[in-house]
Design a protein around this nucleic acid. Structure first.
Length: 245
DNA sequence: GCGACAG
DNA sequence: ATCTTGTCGC
């Protein structure tokens, strides 16, 4: 697939200020409402191609793995390795992991209808998390799936949720969005029958999706584990590339 | 100064 | 994210 807007390519700008300015542009360019056509039904039927993306690290390099699914079946895989240009900084993840991700996606011969990224989308200080950055860069519907919450506040307690339940995540005063704007959801993809609790996933739209639809799509991706199938497979592939099978 | 902080 | 043994629970 091809980058739609070269100016949004996540390469490391000179300063933190420059990176934050670019994120403000990303957020302004991102659409946080349904504007693409990809529906949960399309994901189920196989009418939509879903790409799961995840990274693994080796010393000073990052390896990004992409797995494309059509109705739960793997139809393509790609990967890319690039040197790390900066350390992990909360709020600037896209500038650390974006280069290998974009490179791996560019190597794809097919064009996914939905990108599922490991990290936040709109749940971000400037509403420009990894999923928004990559989604806007390719101008493709994207959703972010994080294992922990970067910012924002759950509308109610998120412990003891049943499988399938979701709780809105509202913007707090650390974010650019008006307070209480629903920027994503805590989504309980899996849960044990009793005692032991599994933490929920934090799903947020990256581009061309409303918060509710983003979560519906992740649910439609399925999977036997906590992470949605596309992400789980990309995670395994990345680890496979890192070690050597 | 204190607390919070995707991967 | 990554480094890792043991350990709790279905």
């Amino acid at each position: 697939m091809d980058v739609a807007a070269e100016r949004f390519r996540p390469t490391r700008p000179g300063s933190r200020e420059a990176m934050e300015r670019l994120q403000a542009e990303i957020a302004a360019e991102a659409t946080f409402e349904d504007a693409a056509g990809v529906t949960p039904a399309d994901v189920h039927s196989g009418d939509a191609l879903v790409a799961g993306v995840d990274q693994a690290f080796l010393d000073d390099r990052a390896v990004s793995a992409v797995v494309v699914l059509r109705g739960g079946e793997v139809i393509a895989r790609e990967s890319a390795v690039t040197p790390l240009s900066m350390p992990y900084v909360p709020g600037l993840l896209a500038f650390r992991e974006g280069e290998p991700i974009v490179a791996a996606l560019e190597a794809l011969d097919v064009d996914p209808d939905l990108l599922v990224l490991d990290g936040s989308g709109r749940i971000h200080y400037r509403e420009a998390g990894l999923a928004a950055h990559v989604g806007v860069c390719f101008d493709v519907p994207a959703v972010g799936v994080a294992k922990s919450l970067l910012c924002g506040r759950p509308r109610r307690a998120t412990d003891a949720l049943e499988a399938g339940e979701r709780v809105p995540i509202e913007a707090d005063d650390s974010m650019s969005a008006p307070e209480e704007t629903v920027v994503g959801h805590a989504y309980q993809s899996r849960q044990y029958p009793d005692s032991t609790r599994i933490n929920p996933l934090y799903v947020s739209p990256g581009h061309r999706l409303a918060a509710g639809t983003a979560t519906d799509l992740v649910a439609a991706c399925g999977g036997e584990y906590k992470l949605p199938r596309p992400t789980r497979l990309a995670d395994r592939y990345a680890d496979e590339l890192k070690t050597g099978r």
